[in-house]
């Protein structure tokens, strides 16, 4: 199993870096431009996953498992977040019959 990093290293680190940064930016742009709570939420998940990817890449390049352990925790925490997030979205949907965040303007920004 020790050889896996070498295989991964056939692709330069920068590619991973650029790729996950791109994913991350897509996520950010999604969060900022979309108006549907679920889609925003998915964009956030995309951001988290780009982080996972990046951490894994770094971890492999450094032959250091810590990064991947971090990924594990991110996944677990993200799951908890998903649970809470979905619960919140469902709660709102039941009250206002919509998941469009523009409806949520009772509080001024």
């Amino acid at each position: 199993m020790n050889d896996i990093p070498e295989v991964i290293r056939t692709i330069p680190l920068n590619y991973y870096l650029f790729f996950s940064t791109a994913l991350f930016c897509i996520g950010i742009i999604g969060v900022l431009t979309r108006r549907n709570a679920i889609i925003i939420f998915m964009c956030i998940e995309l951001m988290l996953n780009s982080v996972n990817l990046l951490l894994t890449a770094f971890s492999s390049y450094r032959s250091d498992p810590n990064g991947q352990i971090f990924v594990f925790f991110i996944m677990a925490v993200a799951a908890a977040e998903v649970a809470v997030g979905l619960a919140i979205i469902v709660m709102i949907y039941r009250n206002v019959r919509s998941t469009d965040i523009n409806i949520l303007n009772k509080l001024k920004w």
């Binding site: 939420f41 780009s50 982080v51 509080l107």
Partner: peptide, 22 residues
Amino acid sequence: LSNEASMKYFLMGSFFTGIILF
């Protein structure tokens, strides 16, 4: 109002969590 607060806090909070993580 509470729903909305929760939603805003959640979306913003996890968004910035993502940023911290990156």
